[in-house]
Design a protein around this nucleic acid. Structure first.
Lengths: 186, 186
DNA sequence: ACTGAAGTTGAGGGGTACCTCAACATGTGA
DNA sequence: TCACATGTTGAGGTACCCCTCAACTTCAGT
């Protein structure tokens, strides 16, 4: 009787191949990339993808939280390295927009397009919490207008997210969004 | 021999039914609505739709320019009724955003998602030209920061457009965008 | 080597949408 | 009335994509 607890080696190999292919394709095309294209890129059948990960959300959660967590942690460190609340909030906003622009997968994550990818959502919630902290600190320091709330921050990043998703996006919209932030400092 | 120049009555009737259905569905779902759903709503086969209009662009051009032209003309009149360049530009921006929000078809038009719908594009170009005039007048009057260019106006309205297209859009993003405009007055 | 559990496969059923075209229907002038 | 130009129809081909499952293959313990 085979050991019921360890997966077979071919299963582990296929899982690894699928993870690698999924990471590449998700980062290139976004989290709504065709699962069949991922299976094909992994050199494995679509049935195996479903065997290993169960669903798109399962695959997302197996692949994206690591990279998303690392990126957000890096940004968090940059933010904390700033000398004052204003610089911290500004670094956070610009950093988030940059992440959204350069990585369709992370952008979809931040937009919460797959709410059932619970591990990923958890990481995004952490970044939202960081944003709220930074808003509160800026308010406490008196450098941010009281009318600029966490909802405004949310809308700013949400706009950046959907703008980033547009294939034929014009350049320069970031300027328009950060202008909105510029207007909020006291 | 039948008169070669006048279409048959059933053809005209079907065309009218298709126009009515297309207008309703385009305004409800946007210009990318399923053509089959339009044919079905018109009580006509999909083949007839293609017979009468040739393509999605043909149907769009047969149906949308009228309504789009009327709406933009109304907005233009409102704009001209304003007493000063600043109020005119602000009325224009808020009016455009309102149009984009309330009518998915007009929004798709303004985003130029169907560049081959030439009649419609012509009308949108006219509204762009109006925007440019208003920017220039505001600059001349010295009420608008020189750094706020027509490109900024374009980005503002483009962001409003793509935000309006999101089905699960949060409310309040308009505030974020108009904050960007607020920041541009001298 | 053998065997049974574990794993893989990919055709196939379901769905959406586009567009075509051969067969059929009808309006209209003579 | 009738012929035929004009017009309608919708099944069917194409192209995506999702997800399943019965048949097949392979791993690994004995």
């Amino acid at each position: 009787m085979p050991d019921a607890r360890r997966p077979r080696r071919d299963a582990r190999d296929n899982e690894a191949k699928l993870r690698a292919a999924a990471l590449e394709i998700f980062e290139d095309k976004g989290l709504d990339a065709s699962l069949e294209s991922i299976a094909k890129a992994a050199g494995v059948s679509i049935g195996t993808l479903y065997n290993r990960f169960g669903s798109r959300e399962g695959l997302i959660d197996a692949v994206i939280p690591d990279i998303a967590g690392a990126r957000l942690q890096t940004l968090g460190a940059e933010v904390l390295a700033q000398p004052d609340p204003k610089a911290r909030l500004e670094t956070f906003v610009r950093g988030m927009i940059a992440l959204q622009r350069q990585d369709p997968a992370l952008n979809d994550a931040i937009l919460r397009r797959y709410p059932d990818a619970t591990a990923l959502i958890g990481i995004c919630d952490a970044s939202t919490a960081l944003g709220q902290d930074l808003i509160a600190q800026a308010h406490d320091a008196g450098v941010l207008a009281p009318e600029f709330t966490q909802a405004d921050l949310f809308h700013l990043l949400w706009l950046a997210g959907i703008a980033s998703r547009e294939a034929h996006a014009p350049n320069g919209w970031q300027h328009t969004l950060t202008r909105a932030l510029d207007n909020a400092w006291t």
